[in-house]
Amino acid sequence: MLGLLFFVFVVAIFLGIELISKVPSQLHTPLMSGSNAISGITIVGALIAVGQPDGGPLVTVLGVVAVAAAMINVVGGYLVSDRMLRMFKRKDEGPKPS
């Protein structure tokens, strides 16, 4: 199990490097906020920490704060990226009514 997870980890890093090295610099900011939102995946860990019964009050407190923080990261990250990407227009698309 552990070996497999390491395998997945290493492959994913190389995959990430391949995917990102081709991004044009004009998209760097949305890419950054978009990938930033992906790092909010830690919310899965936070959900498990709060949702599973075997915790105790401290775990619940830590978990709720973690869920909230990760949720801001996820929701804020995706929405703000979308707001930026909505503005990237080709010439023929014309200006967006703001």
Binding site: F9, S35, N36, S39, I41
Partner: peptide, 21 residues
């Protein structure tokens, strides 16, 4: 920690993209 591969894949992708940038 929680042995969850979606965290590992997503985290590794972001880690890699940050390093490339």
């Amino acid at each position: 920690i929680i042995l969850n591969n979606v965290l590992i894949v997503a985290g590794a992708l972001v880690g890699a993209s940050g390093i490339i940038l």
